[in-house]
Simulated scan of single mutants.
Amino acid sequence: MSDLRLVVFDVDGTLVDSQADILGAMMSAFEAVEIAVPEREDVLGIVGLSLPEAMERLAPDAPARMREKMVEAYKSSYMQRRRDAGTQVSSPLYPGAAAALARLRAVDEVLLGVATGKSRRGLDKLIEGHGLQGIFVTEQVADHHPSKPHPAMLHAAMRETGVAADASVMIGDTSFDMEMARAAGMRAIGVSWGYHDRKALQAADVVIDRFDDLDRALEQIWE
């Protein structure tokens, strides 16, 4: 029986705080088709979903072709904002995130992964911008999977690493992350500093308030 453990992180709202760029890019997307921009809470409420799913939720009455234009406008605006400000400014790591990743990576039995609603290009730019190359052994992105909370990303992560669900944990800030973990048969750790209210994380095994609490939370789950 393998002693390996798999820890999969969500990105936006969990590892990095990209809400300023998300809100700005979403405003550009709605302005591009001359639709009223949703409230801030509504926009942050869809973080974690793939862009097509997000646009469908935020603009359910818009024709499919219009939503496609909104997706492209969002991507263009988001990338421009990151180019203008730089990754470390536009999507800064949350306090303690880098240290937590370093601590976990130093444990031989622990494999790190990512499951994100970002595109492959978006994740690559983020990893490069923060110098996180080589940290994650499995990286699941929206290009190749159904949107969260479908468990396809986590199934792929477990398949790629050879780690079973009972030895795997998903860490995220949204209800979509928690529901995805449950659908994949994995345990889940919610983080309170992200984009969904703490009460939306009821499906989590535990909710932590800072990265310094992560190691103990993982120990409790694996005990």
Score class of each variant (00 low, 15 high):
158 M>N: 09
82 R>E: 10
156 A>E: 14
153 M>V: 04
141 V>R: 04
162 G>R: 07
179 E>K: 10
123 L>I: 01
98 A>Y: 02
124 D>V: 10
182 R>L: 15
180 M>I: 01
57 R>W: 04
136 F>A: 06
127 I>Y: 02
89 V>Y: 04
96 G>L: 02
135 I>L: 12
152 A>M: 05
116 T>W: 01
135 I>H: 07
129 G>Q: 09
144 H>K: 11
156 A>S: 13
96 G>Y: 00
120 R>Y: 05
130 H>F: 03
173 D>N: 03
111 L>A: 11
147 S>D: 06
112 L>S: 01
142 A>C: 10
129 G>F: 02
174 T>G: 04
142 A>I: 07
84 D>P: 12
167 A>H: 11
170 M>P: 01
124 D>P: 09
153 M>N: 04
58 L>P: 02
155 H>I: 12
132 L>A: 11
180 M>N: 01
93 L>I: 02
180 M>S: 01
164 A>I: 12
159 R>H: 15
136 F>T: 06
135 I>P: 06
158 M>I: 08
75 K>E: 10
177 D>E: 14
114 V>G: 01
140 Q>F: 03
166 D>H: 15
178 M>V: 09
133 Q>E: 13
72 E>P: 15
93 L>P: 00
87 T>S: 09
178 M>G: 04
68 E>V: 04
72 E>C: 12
72 E>M: 14
70 M>R: 08
134 G>I: 13
60 P>N: 08
180 M>G: 00
171 I>A: 00
145 H>L: 13
164 A>N: 14
140 Q>R: 10
107 V>L: 14
